[in-house]
Design a protein around this nucleic acid. Structure first.
Length: 366
DNA sequence: AAGTGCGCCAACCGCTTCTTT
DNA sequence: GAAAGAAGCGGTTGGCGCACT
């Protein structure tokens, strides 16, 4: 494209902006607003393309920009959001006030990517990297590439999601987003009759019992003040090694995020502390999807179901050394880690294959 | 001091999406 | 519904500054 309508008349200036140009642009926008960007260069007396003016304003001159280095919390949030949203920088930026998509993209490419790789995490898939057997020491591969046997929960999920239900989820989400008409506040959100998948293999009778509830309703994470996050509530006793139970809040290994461990009559309940105002969701609260509108912060989010799946199940971050037990101000992101925890716990179970077959069957009912 | 390599970041490019006519 | 223009987005590039040799 190169040639915008605003650039036809005269050859636009390129390259870095001079302070004079900045001043002109600021003055003009402060006085008149930007209106149509293609007319800004002429009106402001700039020999720039309107697109270039827009970019300069958005990325550099806007008064609400937060300059300076990213905090650790911001970085963590970016990583977590990236796990959910992928390279959708503008979406990610929407959750970091004062930061631009360009800034975040640059940070990702220059810094975060490297850090994750050093920590043995594939920055694109957010899965742990593993050494390739017999290969070059430096060669690593995504864990999921290697461990694809049927006992791998991830592959089970991937298969069931990718092959049989992604299309349905997309259709569903389309309906969900387009049919939405009423706004739901953070404490009166609507619910879909979406399968709240539960496996409850008699957890009252056996120490081997595992009760897992995966709430697959996109609203559970779309309607979140700070970040969209799937809620995975799990109450389990068998999957946790004794040390977990003893250490209460401290889960060794990769996860030391924000969680509570509640002793519930012999069972250890790991509970999300997601910052949903309403706190507890129940099936009885479900309403028709017609009544539902997803909110992500203040804006409608156009997440597709397949992306949700990737975020919730396929792209679980494992940043044990990032999370150091201190609670992030962004509480809501922590539940992402819980999905990872869920996976790990299920991997310890010899029955999880069946369980996730049930998940996919459940989704089939969409 | 000069040359080189590297990282960071602002800006560009081209494509897609949205809006208007 | 189609076409055109505008805006938005994400990948990529290029230049600057710094560290190292």
């Amino acid at each position: 494209m190169g040639g915008h309508s605003c650039c036809h008349k005269q050859k636009p200036r390129k390259g870095l902006w001079s302070p004079e140009e900045d001043e002109k642009l600021i003055k003009h926008i402060n006085k008149y607003g930007h209106g149509c960007w293609s007319t800004v260069p002429n009106q402001a007396g700039l020999q720039r393309c309107g697109k270039s003016c827009r970019l300069r304003w958005i990325n550099y001159l806007r008064p609400d920009l937060k300059r300076g280095t990213f905090s650790q919390q911001e970085e963590d949030l970016i990583i977590e959001l990236h796990a959910v949203l992928g390279n959708r920088w503008s979406k990610i930026a929407a959750h970091l006030p004062g930061r631009t998509d360009n800034e975040i993209k640059n940070l990702w490419n220059s810094s975060i990517k490297k850090k994750l790789t050093q920590r043995g995490i594939d920055p694109s898939s957010h899965k742990p990297l593993v050494k390739v057997d017999g290969g070059d020491d430096d060669k690593v591969a995504s864990n999921s590439d290697k461990n694809s046997d049927s006992s791998d929960l991830q592959s089970v999920i991937d298969k069931s999601m990718d092959e049989s239900s992604t299309l349905k989820k997309e259709i569903f989400l389309d309906q969900f987003l387009t049919s939405s008409s009423s706004c739901c506040s953070s404490n009166s959100m609507g619910y879909l009759p979406f399968p709240q998948v539960s496996f409850a293999p008699d957890y009252s009778s056996s120490s081997q019992a595992t009760s897992i509830t995966i709430n697959s309703n996109p609203l559970f994470w779309l309607n979140c003040n700070a970040i969209s996050t799937p809620i995975t509530t799990l109450s389990t006793s068998m999957a946790l090694p004794p040390s977990y139970e003893e250490e209460d809040d401290t889960i060794p290994g990769w996860y030391t995020g924000n969680r509570k461990s509640v002793n519930d009559g012999g069972r250890i309940m790991l509970q999300s502390t997601c910052s949903f105002d309403s706190g507890v969701f129940s099936c009885s609260e479900l309403t028709s999807e017609k009544d539902v509108q997803a909110h992500l912060g203040d804006e409608m989010e156009d997440l597709k179901w397949s992306e949700y799946l990737h975020g919730a199940f396929q792209s679980q971050p494992m940043y044990g050394d990032i999370k150091t037990g201190n609670q992030s101000p962004m509480n809501t992101v922590s539940s992402l880690y819980q999905n990872q925890q869920l996976r790990q716990e299920l991997q310890a179970s010899d029955i999880h294959g069946k369980r996730f077959h049930s998940v996919s069957l459940g989704f089939e009912h969409l």
